[in-house]
């Protein structure tokens, strides 16, 4: 790659990293209990007994880590899927993967499986739901070697519809307490407090990022077409399968803790691509970091706009993400 591009992109990655730290710090300060940045630093080093310290460490920090992990996961999953399908409209949400995960999770709530299998039944069910959807999408779209991107997207949107109808069906049949759980979960929020669950999501997000780099050169080869990629020595079938597994894992786990948060996987890689170009060596980490920044920022907004009440974070990502996407598409005349 050209030196100029290398430096430009490294520079962007560093900026995103700084942005993530700044957003994280601001998010630590923001909330119904106002704590200034300098106070945060003071509290971190001494004053471990104060109530502000417990707010920061027990409520806000876990939430930021979760937002970082979920945002990063969704941004990365979007970048991976867009790379494989070579289409900027593809993401976990539009392919129906999020919807599939949501069915798995609702089943866990309805049958109260968490009390039998423990809290990790949620991420497990999310992953299974996601991977089943991916297998359906895979069989439909890559059958006969040819792929129709319109069919694929329509199939994905229809799967999403079917899934949300199925979720409503389950809600209609659910008992009161379960209904509350499902409604609470579908709204999408980052208020999960279980430390082990948060750690799991974070670990999977980071592992997903690292393992996706095994395929970053293959994804670059996909840029020139799937057959061309095969001609320069990429085992395209294997790459596709692994990317689907990674994307399902990232999506399924994110949806299981945070509900359906749309548009992060669509908007983030798209914006990053306009800044950095289509090179996956930078696009993957860029989408991860930008997704993390975006979701942490959106979540901070969600919990401060109408304090002491809280908005579902999916509402904010939908409004901001959708608007940015429309703006970007009109400005850059992106070829779909």
């Amino acid at each position: 790659m050209r030196k100029a591009d290398f430096f430009k992109n490294t520079y962007f990655i560093i900026i995103l990293f700084i942005l993530l730290i700044v957003t994280g710090l601001l998010s630590l300060c923001a909330g119904s209990a106002d704590i200034s940045v300098s106070e945060v630093f003071k509290l971190l080093f001494n004053g471990h007994e104060s109530w502000q310290y417990s707010i920061i460490m027990k409520i806000r920090l876990p939430r930021i880590i979760l937002g970082l992990a979920v945002g990063g996961s969704l941004g990365l999953a979007g970048a991976l899927l867009q790379g494989i399908f070579r289409n900027p409209l593809v993401e976990p949400y539009t392919l129906g993967i999020s919807g599939g995960a949501s069915i798995g999770i609702c089943l866990v709530i309805i049958f109260n499986l968490a009390s039998v299998l423990g809290l990790f039944a949620y991420p497990a069910a999310g992953f299974i739901g996601a991977i089943v959807t991916v297998i359906i999408v895979y069989l439909m779209s890559f059958r006969n070697g040819g792929m129709r991107i319109n069919n694929l997207l329509l199939t994905g949107v229809m799967i999403s519809f079917i899934c949300s109808s199925a979720v409503m069906l389950m809600m209609a049949m659910a008992k009161n307490e379960q209904l509350h759980n499902i409604v609470f979960w579908t709204m999408g929020s980052l208020s999960e407090t279980n430390k082990n669950l948060i750690f799991l999501i974070f670990a999977v997000a980071v592992l997903g990022l690292i393992s996706s780099y095994i395929f970053c050169m293959d994804l670059n080869a996909f840029l020139i077409g799937e057959e061309e990629a095969a001609h320069i020595g990429v085992n395209t079938e294997r790459t596709k399968k692994w990317i689907f597994v990674i994307a399902s894992l990232l999506t399924g786990l994110s949806v299981s803790v945070a509900g359906i948060i749309g548009f992060v996987g669509l908007v983030v890689p798209h914006i990053i691509r306009t800044f950095m170009g289509p090179d996956h060596r930078f696009l993957l980490i860029g989408s991860f970091l930008a997704g993390a920044v975006f979701l942490v920022a959106c979540d901070t907004l969600a919990r401060t706009v109408i304090t002491p009440l809280e908005l579902p974070v999916g509402v904010i990502t939908g409004i901001i993400g959708g608007s940015i996407f429309i703006y970007a598409i009109n400005k850059r005349k992106v070829d779909l």
Binding site: L223, I232, G233, G277
Partner: peptide, 18 residues
């Protein structure tokens, strides 16, 4: 080949991937 948004020299260099 589809007219993709890649620099010609980077495209040629992809032949080294194997």
């Amino acid at each position: 080949i589809e007219p993709v948004l890649i620099n010609v020299s980077e495209y040629v260099l992809m032949g080294r991937m194997p």
